[in-house]
Design a protein around this nucleic acid. Structure first.
Length: 452
RNA sequence: UCCUCGGUAGCUCAAUUGGCAGAGCAUCCGGCUGUUAACCGGACGGUUGUUGGUUCGAGUCCAUCCCGGGGAGCCA
């Protein structure tokens, strides 16, 4: 670029702080168009997108030729004067750069992804490039804010981050399919939850959380499932089911409100209707499993359709777990996330505390997100009596020896305690209004896809 | 694993009853001072997912396998 100056390097996100100044931007050409002696560049730098206007009269002949030769996704350094222009396209938008000098640092080969519709298969095969597209960029930025909000809320509320092992000797809950690995000749499994270890940790630290990747080898192929996903699992000593729901609604509301406060440009790129999100404040509605079954069966009797699907709500027998259509129907009856509590003991994990006086239901709770995003948290009050826990393990026909340490927790100062897990990808999908969790993580691991 | 839909140019799609495989975008060349997925003119671009079958003739019909989308179950 001709006439090097000391114009400061700034980010597109902060352009508004530099109106009237000459600045340097470093980034990539997102799109380009031109008309004779004008070249319009959409420049992105990772923090946003802005239009850079190259007019032949404002740059050297050499720089104008450089600008004309820029291809989509070429890397470049641009020097120019920031102008407030309300109609300028961009993210956040409202400013454009009147270019005085331009230099390319890497001319791009013809770029596979065009600014138009593409099929999912093609985009997934080019995931390493797709991440540059503005909707993907926005979703990843929202994800990062959600992760930050999760950690901030927990750290600020007395929870200690104690991470749990990813390599585990056996199924924690004995239900789902796990990925098996060879642990020096002994079979081991990638963790599906850190919960049992969390329970050990609360007796040392009171309130804890683990936060990391989780693995499920199930042959699930839906918009809500990944083989590898991230989950945060808080666990709390001296906490019962009712107190747990209060924690969850505060926690989830904080996450959503942080996104609204910090991600306005991203949510706009995603064309998210934020009115649904603004309503996400405590308290959330709570319904008992009995009540949910009655609602579902009333809807089934009326022939109501599952929201978003052409099929009627299927009837349910008391004692069965909800199917996906049931969850969708229940969630659609509320404008906020809704707690469904006291599921039948027989469909839930062995360690959940039965309701006193009514042992056929347990002190469990799922949080269903609105708009069809499904279960985003699952939790319960844990069984705190050693003899009841031993009976439950026997009833589920699980081997006793691997659980001896877990039973110990009830032998040495047992307390009422509760915890839950929140799925990061489903939360991101919901906040962003995405219709598939594959777009909520940079490189999703799905049933048939692990490349790139 | 099951149900369902699909696979044609780099991408998005079209192709009548089984009858010459096409268009837009991208790319390359030329033109234009305000573009928003610009526009105008020209060029380049094909083993119709695989294998086999029916037929004078198959992108189109049949069988098979492969790959992908959506859904169920399971779950966060």
């Amino acid at each position: 670029m001709s006439a090097e100056t000391d114009a400061p390097i700034v980010t597109i996100r902060a352009l508004g702080d530099h109106v009237g100044q000459e600045v340097t931007l470093q980034g990539w050409c997102y799109a380009k168009t031109g008309k004779g002696k004008l070249v319009f560049l959409q420049l992105r730098d990772g923090t946003g997108i802005c239009q850079a206007v190259v007019f032949r009269g404002n740059v050297s002949d050499e720089d104008f030729e450089v600008a004309k030769a820029i291809t989509q996704e070429s890397s470049l350094i641009v020097r120019g004067v920031v102008k407030a222009e309300p109609r300028a396209p961009g993210v956040p938008g409202g400013y454009e750069v009147d270019v005085r000098g331009v230099e390319t640092t890497g001319i791009s080969d013809p770029y596979p992804i065009q600014p138009k519709e593409h099929g999912v298969e093609f985009l997934m095969q080019h995931r390493h490039l797709w991440l540059r597209s503005n909707r993907q960029w926005a979703a990843m930025r929202v994800r990062a804010v959600i992760v930050r909000a999760i950690r901030d809320w927990l750290d600020d509320h007395g929870y200690l981050n104690v991470d749990t092992p990813i390599i585990t000797p056996a199924a924690a809950e004995g239900t789902t399919t796990l990925f098996e690995i060879d642990y020096h000749g002994e079979p081991a499994y990638l963790a599906q939850t850190g919960q049992l270890y969390n329970e050990a940790n609360i007796f040392a630290f009171g309130k804890v959380y683990c936060f990391g990747p989780t693995f499920r080898a199930e042959k699930s192929k839906t918009r809500r499932h990944l083989q590898e996903f991230w989950m945060v699992e808080p666990e709390i000593a001296f906490c019962d089911l009712e107190q747990l729901m209060e924690v969850e609604e505060q926690f989830v509301s904080y996450i959503v409100q942080r996104c609204l406060a910090e991600c306005a440009p991203e949510l706009e790129v995603l064309e998210r209707d934020t009115s649904f999100l603004q309503r996400v404040t405590p308290p959330f509605p709570r319904i008992h499993y009995d009540e949910a079954v009655a609602m579902i069966n009333a809807a089934a009797a009326r022939g109501d359709l599952v929201p978003g699907y052409p099929d009627p709500v299927p009837a349910i027998e008391w004692g069965d777990d909800f199917g996906s259509p049931h969850e969708t129907y229940i969630a659609a009856q509320f404008e906020k996330p809704v707690f469904v509590h006291h599921y039948p003991t027989q469909v839930k994990a062995f360690y959940m505390e039965p309701e006193p006086g009514r042992p056929e239901v347990c002190r469990s709770v799922d949080l269903l997100a609105p708009e069809g995003y499904g279960e985003i948290t699952g939790g319960s009050e844990r069984m705190s009596d050693a003899s009841k826990l031993i009976a439950a393990i026997e009833h589920h026909k699980l081997p006793m020896a691997p659980y001896e340490w877990y039973i110990d927790l009830r032998r040495y100062g047992s307390v009422v305690h509760s915890g839950f897990g929140l799925g990061v990808e489903r939360t991101v999908a919901w906040v962003c209004g995405l219709d598939h969790v594959r777009e909520t993580i940079a490189f999703p691991r799905m049933l048939t896809t692990m490349r790139p």
